[in-house]
Design a protein around this nucleic acid. Sequence first.
DNA 1: CGACTCATTATTGTATACATGAAGTACACT
DNA 2: AGTGTACTTCATGTATACAATAATGAGTCG
Lengths: 230, 230
Amino acid sequence: MTGQTHGPLPEAGAGRFGEGRMLSARERAYDGIHSGILNGDFPPGAFIEEAVACEVTGVSRTPVREALNRLAAEGYLELHPRRGAMVRPLSGAELRDLYEVRDLIESHAVRAICRDGRPVPPEMASLCDAHEALPAEEHLRHVEINRLFHRALVAGAGNTVLLQVFDGLQANLTRVAMLSLRQGVGRNEVIEHEHRALIAALEAHDEAHALSVLDRHLKLMPRLMAALPG
Amino acid sequence: MTGQTHGPLPEAGAGRFGEGRMLSARERAYDGIHSGILNGDFPPGAFIEEAVACEVTGVSRTPVREALNRLAAEGYLELHPRRGAMVRPLSGAELRDLYEVRDLIESHAVRAICRDGRPVPPEMASLCDAHEALPAEEHLRHVEINRLFHRALVAGAGNTVLLQVFDGLQANLTRVAMLSLRQGVGRNEVIEHEHRALIAALEAHDEAHALSVLDRHLKLMPRLMAALPG
DNA sequence: CGACTCATTATTGTATACATGAAGTACACT
DNA sequence: AGTGTACTTCATGTATACAATAATGAGTCG
C-alpha cells in the first residue's frame, strides 16, 4: 500500500518528517482520521474503511483500529460490528440536545462560582485578550480559543467529573463549530463582547445576570444552525 | 498460554461453551476484565498486564487491548503509555463530584418532566414493582434495577445527549454501588419508598417537591461513603 | 422476466510475530 | 561501599498473517 513493509529496516519509525517530535502510530492514525472527519474528507454518513484509513495515515491496521475505537467513544463515529465505522451525522435534534446539556453544565458552573464565591478563573480574561488580538481569518484558532474559554468557565466550578463530561461533549461541539465556520457564521466581535460581559457578571457575583448573558450567548448557535438536516 | 494455537483449525471459535449464544472475543475480554474490576480481582491502583488479562479471558492480546481501551474510555482504567493499564482508584473527592453531576442531570430531568408536562416514564413504576418483588439477597439485581430506575428518569427528559452523558457516569456509579454493597449498606426499603415518592411528585407535576425528594435520595450515598480514601 | 441460491470477493475480527523502549540488575569503577 | 553504566529481560507498541462473515454478482430455476 504505502510501502511500509518494515522487514528488518533498522531506521524503523525514526524521523518520519524532518520537523518536530516523533508521533506514535496510534497518534498519527487518530490525528489523520480526526482531521479527515473535521474537514469533510470523511463526510457525515460515510463509512470509513480500515484499509483507506491505513493509506491516509500511513500506519497499519492495529493503530488505525484503536483510533477508530477512540473516535467512536468520543462520539465521532458509530461502530457497526462486521460492517465498519460510520461517521455519525448530527441531526438538528441532537444539536438542540447537545446545546441544552452544554447550557446545563455551564449554568451550573456559573452558579457554583457566583454562589459559593469561587474565584473567576483568570484564564477567561487572558483568553479574551488572545481572542481579541487574533486576526479574524484565523478560524481554527478562534474556535480553539472559544473552546478554551468555555472550558475554563466549567473548570472554575472545581468539579473534575463535570469537566470531564464537558470535555466529552467537545468532539461534537467542535464539529458543529467547524460546520458553522464553513457556512461563514463568524461573529467574533459579538462573541468576544459577550465573553467580557460574562466575566464582569461573574466577578460581581451577579448570578442572575451571568446566567442571562450565558443563556443568550449559548442560544445563538443552535438558532444559526437551524437549517440542519434532521 | 491457554493453548489457543488456532492454526488451521476449521471449527475455530465455534460453540466454545455449550450454553447460550456465542460471544465475540472482544466481548469476552471486556466482560472478563470488567467483572474482574467490579468484584475486586483487579483492585483499585493495580496494574493490569495484557498477558494476565489474556489468561483470564482466554483470548489473544488484540481483543484484550480493545477491551482495555474501552474500559479506559468508560473511566474504569487509566492508560499509561508504555506502562500499562491502571485500575483507577476513586477518591472521596471524585465521588462527591460524581454525585454532584448526577444530581445536576437528574434534577434537570425532573424539571423537564414537571415543567414541560412530559409524561412520567411508565418503566419507573414497573421497576419499582420489580424492586419490591425481588428477594433482598439479590444484591446485583437490586443495583441493576436501581440503575435502570434512575436511567428511566433521565430518559424521560427526552434528551438523547443527556442520557448518553448519564450512561457515561454509570461505570463509576456502578463501582461505588458495588463498594457500598460489600460494606453492607443495603437499605432497599428506604430506596424503594423514596422512588415511589418521586414518582408521585412527578405525576403531580410538583417540581419543588420532586426536587427535594430527589435531593434527599441522592445525598444518602455520598454520606454513607464518606469514609472513602482521598 | 423476476426472484432465489450459491460462489466469489472484499472487509472486518483475531492471533501472533516482531520491534521498541523501559525497568531492573549486575558489574565495574571511583 | 556507593554510584553510575551497560546489559538483560520483559511488557507494550506495531505490523501482518490468517479466519470468518457479510456484501455482491452470476447463474439458474420458476
